[in-house]
Simulated scan of single mutants.
Amino acid sequence: MKISFYVLSESKAQEFLGFICQLTQTALNKSEQSLLILASDEAQLTALDDALWSKDPLSFIPHQRLLETTDHDTKVATQPLAPVTLSSYMPADFSGIVINTTAHPVSTNNSVKPSRILEIIKPDETSMSEGRHKYKSYQQAGYELTHFKV
Rank of each mutant, 00 (worst) to 15 (best):
A39N: 06
I120H: 04
L23F: 06
D73C: 08
V84R: 03
V106R: 00
D124Y: 07
V106C: 06
E10N: 07
T46Q: 12
S111D: 12
I61W: 10
K30V: 05
L17K: 05
Q139G: 01
R65P: 03
T69W: 06
G96N: 11
N109Q: 08
S11Q: 13
I121P: 01
Y135L: 05
P57M: 14
S88K: 15
N109V: 06
V150R: 04
S4K: 11
S111C: 07
M1H: 07
L67P: 06
P105S: 08
H104W: 10
S137A: 08
S129W: 08
I120N: 02
E42C: 00
S4I: 10
T70S: 11
E32H: 10
S129L: 15
K2R: 15
S4P: 00
P114T: 05
I97F: 03
H104K: 12
L67C: 06
Y143K: 14
S137P: 12
K12A: 05
Q22R: 09
N110H: 08
M128L: 15
L36H: 00
K149M: 14
L45G: 01
G18T: 07
M1T: 04
T26H: 13
T46D: 15
V7E: 13
I97L: 06
L8C: 08
C21I: 03
I20R: 01
H133P: 11
H133G: 09
E125Q: 04
E144Y: 12
H72E: 14
T24H: 06
T102N: 04
V106D: 06
A51T: 00
A13M: 10
I37A: 01
T74Q: 12
Y138M: 03
R132A: 09
P91M: 07
I37N: 00
C21V: 10
T46C: 08
L17S: 04
L17N: 09
H72W: 11
E15Y: 14
D50S: 04
T74L: 11
P62Y: 09
D56I: 07
H147F: 14
L145F: 07
P114Y: 09
S107P: 00
L45F: 02
I117N: 01
C21H: 02
K134M: 10
S137Q: 09
F16P: 00
N100V: 01
T26L: 14
E10T: 09
A77E: 10
L23R: 11
S40G: 03
V84C: 02
N29A: 15
K55H: 14
Q22L: 13
G96K: 08
F16Q: 02
K30C: 12
H147G: 04
P114W: 08
D124S: 02
E144Q: 13
Q22V: 10
G142I: 13
M90A: 13
S115H: 06
